[in-house]
Design a protein around this nucleic acid. Sequence first.
DNA 1: GCCAATTTTTAGGCGTATCTAAAAATTATT
DNA 2: AATAATTTTTAGATACGCCTAAAAATTGGC
Lengths: 221, 221
Amino acid sequence: MYTQTEENYLKAIFHLSEISSTGISTNAIAKKMATKPSSVTDMVQKLSEKKVIHYKKYQGVLLTSYGRKIAASIVRKHRLWEVFLVEKLNFSWDEVHEVAEQLEHIKSPKLTNELDTFLGFPKQDPHGDPIPDKEGNYDLLEKKLLATLGLGQSGICVGVNDSSSDFLQFLDKQKIALGYEIKVVGKEPFDGSMQLQISNREFSISNKIANNLYIKILPGS
Amino acid sequence: MYTQTEENYLKAIFHLSEISSTGISTNAIAKKMATKPSSVTDMVQKLSEKKVIHYKKYQGVLLTSYGRKIAASIVRKHRLWEVFLVEKLNFSWDEVHEVAEQLEHIKSPKLTNELDTFLGFPKQDPHGDPIPDKEGNYDLLEKKLLATLGLGQSGICVGVNDSSSDFLQFLDKQKIALGYEIKVVGKEPFDGSMQLQISNREFSISNKIANNLYIKILPGS
DNA sequence: GCCAATTTTTAGGCGTATCTAAAAATTATT
DNA sequence: AATAATTTTTAGATACGCCTAAAAATTGGC
């Protein structure tokens, strides 16, 4: 069994591993965990003894396959709870993270799997991130600019390129927000503008807008 | 903010207060928490500094009104989660406690209140214990012998007087179990036997049986 | 390839929550 | 009321997770 702190370190290393494929540095972990590098050294030595990470002095760490499985199960719980909070308890996109950080540490395989069933086996969380299955496997969703999507494709809005207040206010006015599912229902070759559908609402945006919105493609679209 | 351990001590003192109305002894708390009396002394000194209990050396402890409110909010969360687990996630009566012990420490007033709404503002948990409201108020349900119930009254089966295997096997055969709601639909003056209804199933039991089953009366019955 | 800058580790300390063993206070017995 | 039994508290120790300060190893610049 792992303490909440150990689980948080595993999760941090898991997320850092998704970016850099080399060994994860003590400093990188310290930054992510908002602690000091010396504390990280203490913890990675402990995690190494527990065989969940590979660690050699001064060489950074990597998850063992065992450690990766544990980390994935924590991420699975985190994202399932996020879906629950948004879909069943009227939480908004930006309120879920803090609570899910707590709920992800609840230890009960039955709870996790029944929750999964209750929610209808969702494949993505409200931010468009994939939910690992019981074995820890998940689909990597590709992040693209909205402008690159083809007709009929849909995805979840996950970020902006330009964060000027003009642009953010435009998004607000059009009721486009992170976490929304957007479907491309038309593309205008002449000016690159796009016809979009968000929850049965249709409207069009310019090419400039489409080049400033990041989207995660939903599989099978 | 309180640590999980502090919350568990508060809850233990809260439950012990429901029984004995005098000061709660160090030993009683140690027994309930499965720790040593010396550990309890350490903790009650800390809780006393935080003004959640009244404590004078060698004289036991009592919750302050502030402490009682905090304890009630933990019990509220525990029991709401129990309802959730049983009604939404197919947990059985006896599986919920361990998981609820973890879930009760999640800190998010919005979560608690939305959960309450989602569940339709239940007044009892699956064991028939009352769920405190936001202010920490709750109805005390009276525990009675089934034999003392009047015609038309109903309650939740919460315990047995006689735990001989003969008696427990009888309950099993009749499909009577803790947590079940029982309604009295007939009383026979001649031999004191009773006609019961459990989830649309009707059958009768002898007076001897009725004198060995504890029931919590549901308000308004 | 050497020296400086950076990163990482070690050493020693702190607060929490626990324990055991022993001392102090209370309660019960005669 | 004095002593015995019990309860409670204190004292000192341990594991966890964190810190600061200093030492050691690695990396980068010239």
